[in-house]
Amino acid sequence: RELRDAFREFDTNGDGRISVGELRAALKALLGERLSQREVDEILQDVDLNGDGLVDFEEFVRMMS
């Protein structure tokens, strides 16, 4: 339940997936600093298991585990 709530916080447009822009904004909020595009792309590449360029809830749960 906590992970579902956190996912909703990251998924600002409510489409059920976290985009690169949403991921960048969430990481900035969490870390208090802006990451480079390359750093965000590397994180997305590690987390995006199905290669669609987005983070779905299952991928998010794995990222947070």
Rank of each mutant, 00 (worst) to 15 (best):
S36Q: 13
G21M: 09
A25H: 11
E58M: 06
S19D: 09
E2H: 09
D56V: 13
N50M: 00
I43H: 15
L30M: 01
Q37W: 10
L3V: 07
L31Q: 14
E42Q: 04
L3W: 06
E9L: 06
E33L: 06
R1N: 14
T12Q: 07
K28N: 07
A6Q: 12
V20L: 14
E59S: 09
E22C: 02
A6C: 14
L27M: 11
M63V: 13
R4S: 04
A25F: 09
D56Q: 07
Q45T: 12
Q45E: 09
A26Y: 06
L27E: 04
E9R: 14
D46R: 02
D48E: 15
D5H: 07
M63E: 01
F60K: 00
D5Q: 11
D11H: 00
M63H: 13
M63P: 01
L35T: 12
V20W: 05
L3D: 02
G32S: 02
S19I: 02
N13Q: 00
S36L: 12
S36K: 13
Q37N: 15
D56T: 12
R38T: 10
E33T: 10
V55T: 10
E58H: 11
L44H: 14
F7Q: 00
D52N: 11
G21L: 10
E9Q: 10
A6N: 13
F60V: 04
A6M: 14
I18K: 01
G51T: 12
R4E: 15
R8F: 01
I43E: 13
A26I: 00
F10H: 14
G53C: 08
D48K: 15
G32N: 05
V47Y: 11
G16R: 03
G14P: 01
A6F: 10
D5M: 06
D41A: 07
A6V: 12
L54I: 05
E58Q: 08
F60D: 01
F57L: 10
D48Y: 13
E22T: 02
D52L: 08
F7R: 00
G16F: 00
E59Q: 11
G21A: 12
E22L: 00
L49M: 05
L44G: 11
G51Y: 08
F60I: 15
V20K: 01
D11G: 02
L27F: 14
L27K: 11
F60M: 08
N50V: 05
M63I: 12
D48I: 14
E2D: 01
E33K: 13
F7W: 07
L31M: 15
R34G: 13
D46S: 08
D56Y: 06
F60H: 00
G21V: 09
L44F: 13
L54K: 05
A6R: 14
L30F: 06
A26C: 15
Q45N: 03
E9G: 11
E42N: 00
G51N: 14
L31W: 05
R38W: 08
L31A: 15
T12H: 13
A25I: 01
D46K: 07
E59V: 14
D46C: 03
L23C: 07
A29R: 13
L44M: 05
V61D: 12
T12F: 02
R4Q: 05
R62N: 08
V47C: 05
V55K: 01
G53T: 08
V47W: 06
L35Q: 13
D5T: 13
L44W: 02
L49F: 06
A26M: 15
S36H: 01
V40E: 15
M64D: 05
F60E: 01
D56H: 11
F7Y: 05
A29F: 05
G32P: 10
G32K: 05
F7L: 02
L35Y: 12
Q45K: 05
G32F: 04
T12M: 03
F7M: 03
R62F: 05
S36V: 14
A29E: 08
S19H: 02
G14W: 01
R34W: 01
R38I: 13
T12V: 03
M64V: 15
Q45M: 07
R1C: 05
D15N: 11
V47G: 04
E59Y: 07
N13I: 00
D48C: 00
E33D: 14
N13C: 02
E58V: 08
M63K: 02
R8Q: 08
L54A: 05
Q45H: 11
E42A: 06
R17C: 15
E22Y: 00
L35P: 11
I18P: 00
I43L: 11
Q37K: 12
L27G: 15
L27C: 12
L30A: 05
L23H: 01
D52G: 09
R17M: 08
N50P: 06
L31P: 13
V55Y: 13
R34N: 13
D5Y: 02
A26R: 03
G21S: 10
M63A: 10
E22G: 14
R62M: 07
E59I: 10
N50C: 13
R34K: 15
E33P: 11
E33M: 10
L54C: 05
E59L: 14
R8A: 10
F60Q: 00
G16E: 08
R34C: 13
A6L: 11
R4N: 10
L31S: 14
D41S: 04
L35S: 10
M63T: 14
F57S: 15
E42L: 06
E58D: 09
I43Y: 03
I18A: 01
A25Y: 07
R38H: 15
D46N: 06
V40F: 09
L27R: 06
F10M: 03
E2M: 02
L54Q: 09
L23Y: 05
E42W: 06
E2A: 02
A29V: 04
L3R: 01
F7H: 00
E58T: 09
F10G: 03
N50H: 06
L54W: 03
E9M: 07
L44Q: 12
G32L: 01
F10C: 07
V40Q: 13
L30C: 13
L23W: 04
D52K: 09
M63Q: 10
E42Y: 04
L23M: 12
R17P: 01
I43G: 15
D52V: 07
A25V: 10
S19R: 01
S19M: 04
I18D: 00
R34M: 05
D46V: 03
V55C: 11
M64G: 12
R1E: 15
F7E: 00
D5R: 08
E59R: 09
G14Y: 00
D11I: 00
L44V: 12
V55R: 00
G51C: 09
L44D: 09
L30Q: 12
G21D: 15
G53A: 08
N13S: 01
A25R: 13
D52F: 03
D41G: 06
M63L: 14
V55H: 03
A26K: 01
R8E: 11
A25M: 12
A26D: 03
D41C: 09
L27V: 14
A6E: 09
T12W: 02
M64W: 14
L30I: 07
L35K: 15
F10E: 02
V61P: 02
N50L: 05
L23N: 05
D11L: 00
D46P: 04
L27A: 15
T12P: 01
F60Y: 08
D5P: 01
A6W: 08
F10Y: 07
S19Q: 01
A26P: 05
G32I: 03
E58N: 04
E42P: 04
L3T: 04
E9H: 03
D41H: 03
L27Y: 07
K28I: 12
D48L: 11
M63S: 07
D48W: 08
T12A: 06
N50K: 12
R34P: 12
E22H: 02
Q45R: 13
Q37R: 09
M64P: 01
R34L: 06
T12D: 03
A26V: 08
D56C: 04
K28V: 14
R38F: 08
R1I: 07
V47A: 07
E2V: 03
G53Y: 11
G14K: 12
N13Y: 00
V47R: 12
E33Y: 08
E2K: 07
V40T: 06
E22M: 02
M63Y: 08
E33G: 12
L27W: 07
T12N: 12
A25S: 14
R8T: 13
L35A: 14
R17E: 04
R1G: 05
D41W: 07
G16T: 01
D48G: 02
A29T: 11
E22P: 00
E22I: 01
R8H: 00
R4P: 00
